[in-house]
């Protein structure tokens, strides 16, 4: 091979490498957004119905001290949610309806429905959500709430850091780990300005339910209170027809 050809080959190779590197850098933000959108899409559903068991441990070191609740929930879009307690017997039939920022509670013991307005997003869901707050169970995509960047990518997962878009967001930052094959989160760390690393959500036991892959076991640990809540999904259906009465404040208690 003569010298000229060598020089051209080297220059071409260098140009190709530069292009590849440029392409890598230029592609990164887009990839992260794609990842986040893929995760959001996987979790999005027009409607859902779930039967679950929620176990709260006020002291996560004490597995014997726990409160167990069997719950049926319905959701529609990002704003409407309905929960009904099936167990324990003492609160069987208690229902909570959430529409946006407003919540109603139906007490089967008295037959009354009370409106709970202006609840703080960071509060536990009507006190019965354990370590899951309204923010945690509420709707809204990751994309709409956080600006993400990629922290790490390995063969099985992505780790993304999301900074809150709004100043008054409940969580100032989240670190989300998602399974590449499933495009589903496996772990989310929640941070607040005040407490720093505040809560930890781990999602495991992925199964196909209602035609989609989803985590059936979610464990939320509150690092400040040293408490934890475990939600186990027993059955789920998505994008199904749900009676409107479940999301109607004057009918959900019937």
């Amino acid at each position: 091979m003569n010298a000229k050809k060598v020089i051209v080959s080297v220059l071409l190779s260098a140009a190709l490498c530069a292009l590849a590197a440029f392409g890598q850098g230029a592609a990164a933000p887009e990839d992260v957004l794609s990842i986040v959108r893929a995760i959001d899409a996987k979790q999005r559903s027009a409607t859902s119905r779930q039967d679950m068991v929620m176990t709260t441990y006020p002291d996560m070191g004490d597995e014997g001290n726990k409160r167990e609740f069997a719950i049926r929930s319905y959701s529609k879009g990002e704003d409407d949610s309905y929960m009904e307690f099936l167990e324990p017997r003492s609160i069987k039939g208690l229902r909570i309806l959430g529409k946006g920022d407003d919540n109603w509670v139906f007490f089967p013991s008295t037959g009354r429905t009370r409106k709970i307005a202006g609840t703080s997003k960071k509060d536990s869901v009507q006190g019965v959500g354990g370590d899951f707050s309204y923010e945690d169970v509420g709707g809204g995509s990751f994309e709409s709430k956080y600006d993400f960047r990629l922290l790490k990518s390995d063969s099985g997962s992505w780790t993304l850091e999301g900074v809150a878009k709004k100043k008054d967001a409940v969580y100032s930052k989240i670190v989300l780990t998602a399974d590449k094959a499933k495009s589903l989160p496996t772990r989310i760390e929640f941070y607040t300005e005040e407490d720093g690393y505040f809560k930890d959500l781990v999602m495991t036991d992925f199964k196909v339910m209602g035609g989609r892959d989803a985590a059936t076991r979610m464990t939320m640990v509150n690092l400040k209170k040293k408490s934890k809540t475990v939600v186990v999904v027993k059955a789920a259906e998505y994008d199904i027809q749900i009676d409107e009465r479940y999301f109607n404040p004057s009918r959900f208690d019937k």
Partner: peptide, 22 residues
């Protein structure tokens, strides 16, 4: 009476079924 009954219901979540309020 209803308010106190509902108070008991609410207390189950945070304090357990057999708490002092119930």
């Amino acid at each position: 009476e209803w308010n106190l009954i509902e108070l008991g219901d609410i207390s189950v979540a945070g304090l357990g079924e057999n708490n002092k309020i119930v």
